[in-house]
Measured scan of single mutants.
Amino acid sequence: RKEMTAACTPRRRIINLTSVLSLQEEINEQGHEVLREMLHNHSFVGCVNPQWALAQHQTKLYLLNTTKLSEELFYQILIYDFANFGVLRLSEPAPLFDLAMLALDSPESGWTEEDGPKEGLAEYIVEFLKKKAEMLADYFSLEIDEEGNLIGLPLLIDNYVPPLEGLPIFILRLATEVNWDEEKECFESLSKECAMFYSIRKQYISEESTLSGQQSEVPGSIPNSWKWTVEHIVYKALRSHILPPKHFTEDGNILQLANLPDLYKVFERC
């Protein structure tokens, strides 16, 4: 597991931080080997919608929660590849102030007048994250320049770009939802926020969305749709870069829909 690298990086740093090793061990302890084997050997059937997909393993048909699986995938990559990410360069710098204002204007932020003026909160978020810029760049390849612009994001899987519609809320939550006081809790909560931002979430995906850094293989055609990215990038990574937690067998994120021999018997009677 320590050699797990989802995106190509030129050289690998050895990380011996106790906090990170502890988080890696927790993933191992909570892992479910049968689910790992199923995901490793599954045959992708198709997307139901951005949140759900169908896959077959041996004779069984499964309904998989793409949102939760991708979130767990990105969390584990962030923990196992800690401080070893490439950088996704933004085509132009994104001012943190503008991103924070967009987030505060969104109902998702939960902002009320009692929280104070949005401009003041946005300025605080910019200054707060600028103070964390060195650590964010060093460990997470999340790059913020001296003017308070976001200029780079971590490359977690080759050819995958997170849904940038979720970027404003991500920046807001970096400042408000991460435990910045304790090292282990900081790395864990920061990785979880980043994983949620990178995950496939239906509120940020339309039929026209593209999450891939590449064009489709047909010359002159439109960019790959999110469905292509889910199948050929995300579920491909799920084959080798995730140890599913045991609770996925109990919380409805992986559901067995049918045993195909039983279905064949039904059709034979028709």
Rank of each mutant, 00 (worst) to 15 (best):
R1I: 13
K2E: 12
T5C: 04
A6C: 11
A6R: 04
A6F: 04
A7I: 06
A7P: 05
T9H: 10
R13N: 07
I14R: 07
I14V: 11
N16M: 10
T18M: 08
S19E: 04
L21R: 08
L21C: 09
S22I: 15
S22H: 06
L23N: 00
E25W: 14
E25L: 10
I27T: 06
N28E: 13
H32I: 06
E33R: 13
V34N: 13
L35A: 13
R36I: 05
R36S: 15
M38H: 03
L39Y: 01
H42Q: 09
H42P: 00
S43K: 15
V45G: 04
G46E: 12
N49S: 13
N49K: 04
Q51S: 07
Q51E: 12
Q51H: 04
W52M: 08
A55W: 02
H57P: 01
H57V: 06
Q58S: 14
Q58T: 12
K60Y: 15
K60H: 08
K60C: 13
K60S: 13
L61Y: 06
Y62A: 01
Y62W: 15
L63G: 04
L63M: 09
L64V: 08
L64K: 02
L64N: 02
N65S: 11
N65Q: 02
T67R: 04
E71H: 11
E72N: 05
Y75R: 14
Q76T: 00
Q76E: 03
I79S: 03
I79Y: 00
F82W: 04
N84P: 01
F85M: 06
F85K: 01
G86H: 08
G86S: 14
V87I: 15
V87G: 10
R89V: 14
S91G: 13
E92K: 15
P93A: 15
P93I: 06
A94T: 15
A94V: 15
P95H: 11
F97Y: 14
L99P: 02
M101P: 00
L102R: 15
L102T: 14
A103R: 02
A103T: 04
A103C: 05
A103I: 03
A103V: 03
P107Y: 09
S109C: 11
G110T: 11
W111D: 03
E114A: 06
E114I: 15
D115V: 09
P117F: 07
E119Y: 09
E119I: 12
G120F: 10
G120Y: 14
L121M: 09
E123Y: 06
E123H: 09
I125T: 08
I125K: 02
I125V: 11
V126Y: 05
V126W: 04
E127F: 07
E127Y: 08
E127D: 10
F128K: 08
L129T: 03
E134V: 08
E134I: 09
E134R: 06
D138N: 05
D138F: 05
S141Q: 09
S141R: 08
L142I: 15
L142D: 01
D145Y: 02
E147Y: 13
E147S: 07
G148H: 05
N149W: 09
N149K: 07
L150P: 02
G152N: 06
G152A: 08
L153H: 02
L153D: 01
P154I: 01
P154K: 02
L155N: 08
L156C: 03
N159K: 14
N159H: 09
V161Q: 11
L164W: 12
G166V: 01
G166R: 03
L167G: 00
P168H: 05
P168D: 04
P168R: 03
F170E: 01
I171L: 11
I171Y: 00
R173V: 01
L174G: 00
A175Y: 14
A175M: 15
T176F: 13
E177Q: 06
E182H: 09
E183C: 03
F187M: 06
F187I: 11
S189Q: 10
S191F: 07
K192Y: 07
C194W: 03
M196H: 10
M196R: 15
Y198Q: 01
R201S: 03
Q203L: 08
Y204R: 03
T210Y: 12
S212M: 13
G213F: 14
Q214C: 10
Q215M: 08
E217H: 09
V218N: 13
G220D: 14
G220Q: 13
N224D: 11
S225Q: 09
V230M: 04
V230T: 12
V230K: 01
H232G: 03
I233M: 06
V234I: 14
V234C: 03
Y235L: 02
K236Y: 06
K236S: 08
A237G: 06
L238K: 00
L238D: 00
R239Y: 00
R239W: 00
S240G: 11
H241T: 07
L243M: 12
L243E: 11
L243Y: 13
P244G: 01
P245G: 10
K246A: 13
K246S: 15
H247T: 14
H247L: 07
E250A: 08
E250K: 08
E250L: 08
D251W: 03
G252T: 07
N253K: 10
I254N: 01
I254D: 01
L255I: 08
L255A: 07
Q256V: 09
N259W: 04
N259Y: 06
N259V: 06
P261S: 10
P261W: 05
D262L: 05
Y264A: 15
K265H: 13
V266R: 15
E268W: 04
E268K: 06
R269C: 06
C270Y: 12
C270T: 15
